[in-house]
Design a protein around this nucleic acid. Sequence first.
DNA 1: CGGATGACGGGTC
DNA 2: AGACCCGCCATCC
Length: 110
Amino acid sequence: MKKTEDFYEKVYEVVRQIPDGKVTSYGAIAKAIGATKSARTVGYAMNNSLKSDAGLPAHRVVNRNGVLTGKHHFNEIDLMQKRLEAEGHVVENDQIKNFQEVFWDPFELY
DNA sequence: CGGATGACGGGTC
DNA sequence: AGACCCGCCATCC
């Protein structure tokens, strides 16, 4: 269990360091941490962070397609999209426009 | 212990 | 482009 919690911690740390106006993907986070876990586990960590109320900018984490796959986990369905739009992103059809341009690779931290 | 589930990703058709 | 499948791993039943 200890290793799992440690993994969650790393995920939170990376998410917290996502620059303003930037977004990243679950797979990128998993890769940056060490790819010891799958991208699926990163999403699970995020889901766990909701309960912990870690205050993470979870809206800045989307899947590799730039799709807001986790919007249903927010209190309000459109909260995730609203937050992204508030940061200057353009969301259309639950997908971030110009995803490549606003994508931030956490691998740069290491 | 085995199968199902999921904020995923990569590959195939 | 879109649908499908498989591997991935923590958690639940």
